[in-house]
């Protein structure tokens, strides 16, 4: 049942925290026991070992650098590509949503590129850019760009025509309608796009670094694989998960700040 009538001694929030702790502790205990006392210990390192290794990784380097550096370089790659994707994606999306001509010119090309997964570009990007950072920027850019464009396009297409009519009626010219009506009313859509894009970008950097890199979180886990070091892989996954979580929540917090006027809110 979707009711929230389980326990009157605790508030809903307290209950969630209590259960979260219980279930996490259970997970760690089961993991620890399985890894120490069953035959799974062959390939599953105990939880305690992974956690100590995780904390140690901030002080002791993995490969040449500490974990903070690996996370930092991956984030830097995402940030650069994300910035480009945001600017180009919003421009293309709003343009296609607002102008029929612009849409007619660019939409077929965009629709041709869109279904190709960003990681499928890796072989070409290596041919074009070698193993440099440019290639990684390119892959991550493609990973973010499509989501931002599609969402912005949706937003600009769904502007209430009555709002545009109202603005024209009040004396706004086409340029003003575009900047004061079409653009701001697409903002919630753009944010939805940015949120998906940042997650996709993080996923793309992991993929790109796994295939061609000498540092970064993706490299950490793939290096763990090639040296048979399960602990290192798991430490990498923990770091990737934490950063992914922060990124996803950062954008929704930002959206709540910037779109206070937008009462209706999704999940």
């Amino acid at each position: 049942m979707i009711d929230s009538t389980t326990n009157s001694r605790f508030t809903n929030k307290q209950l969630i925290i209590i259960y979260t702790i219980i279930s996490l502790v259970c997970l760690l205990i089961v993991w620890e026991l399985v890894a120490r006392f069953t035959s799974a210990s062959m390939f599953l390192p105990p939880a305690s070992e992974v956690l100590t290794a995780f904390f140690r990784s901030f002080a002791e380097p993995i490969g040449q650098h500490t974990m903070l550096f690996h996370v930092g370089i991956s984030l830097y790659r995402v940030a650069v590509a994300f910035l480009f994707a945001t600017v180009i994606g919003i421009a293309l999306g709003v343009g296609m949503g607002y102008s029929r001509l612009f849409e007619a010119i660019f939409k077929p090309l965009f629709e041709f590129i869109r279904p190709i997964p960003p990681l499928a570009w890796i072989p070409l990007s290596i041919l074009w850019f070698g193993l440099s950072d440019t290639g990684k920027f390119f892959i991550i850019f493609l990973g973010c760009f499509c989501f931002i464009t599609v969402n912005t396009y949706d937003g600009a297409k769904n502007v209430d025509p009555e709002l545009m009519g109202a603005a024209r009626m009040l004396g706004a010219n086409e340029r003003q309608v575009f900047f004061k009506i079409v653009l701001p009313s697409s903002v919630p859509y753009i944010f939805a796009g940015l949120q998906i894009a940042v997650t996709a970008g993080w996923s793309a950097v992991v993929g790109a670094e796994m295939i061609q890199s000498n540092e970064g979180v993706g490299w950490v886990i793939i290096r763990g694989m090639s040296t048979g070091n399960t602990v290192q892989i798991m430490v990498g996954i923990v770091a990737i998960g934490i950063v992914g979580f922060i990124l996803a929540n950062l954008t929704s917090a930002l959206e709540r700040r910037l779109c206070a006027w937008n009462a209706q809110k999704g999940i």
Binding site: S23, L24, L27, F43, L119, T199, W202, S203, V206, G207, M210, G218, I221, I222, G224, M225, G228, T230, I233, M234, G236, I237, I240, G241, I242, G244, F245, A248
Partner: peptide
């Protein structure tokens, strides 16, 4: 438990799975 797995991109499981 699900929320722990959720933010990890599927690709990050590749090394573990292969191993």
């Amino acid at each position: 438990l699900f929320d722990i797995i959720r933010p990890v991109p599927a690709l990050a499981w590749i090394p573990l799975m292969i191993l």
